[in-house]
Each structure stands twice: as C-alpha cells, then as structure tokens.
Amino acid sequence: MPSLIAVLAFAAGAFWLEAPGLIRRKLTKELVVFILFLLAGTAFYAALVLEVRLPNLFQIIKLVYRIDA
C-alpha cells in the first residue's frame, strides 16, 4: 500500500514537472503523448507494486525465436 502511494506520488511529480512547460508552450500533441505514456508507465508500475503478474517480454522472444520450444 505505501509503495502504491509512492508510485502515484512519483507519477504526479513527473506530471507536475513536465506538464506546465508543455501547456505554456501550447504543445498539445506532445502533452497528449506525454499523458498517455505516463498513464501507461504508472499503470504498469502500479501493477508491479501490487504484484500483478506482468508479461515477461523475454518469454515472448523465446516463443517467437525458439525453434524447438
């Protein structure tokens, strides 16, 4: 639970750090992309902290490339 709050706080901090600059310069596309990525990052990080099983990307490589798997 505390780690989840830390993750959310961290994401909020990142948002507060970057967003004002983007808003000020009216870079809407950049802002949207930033928010999307930040949401993705926070979601995954929160999943990690809450011990939700995340896909192992290396296993995907193994599935694709292993001939005799």
Binding site: G41, T42, F44, P55, L57
Partner: peptide, 19 residues
Amino acid sequence: RMLTIPLGMLLLVFTIAGT
C-alpha cells in the same frame, strides 16, 4: 524531454518483470 520519465518507468517495470 517529457517522455523521459514515463519511458524510464516502463523500462524499469519490464526489466523486473523480465528477470
């Protein structure tokens, strides 16, 4: 520049998930 932190988070999470 604004992509740095979110990308960092993604890298971190998937490193830990991958190992």
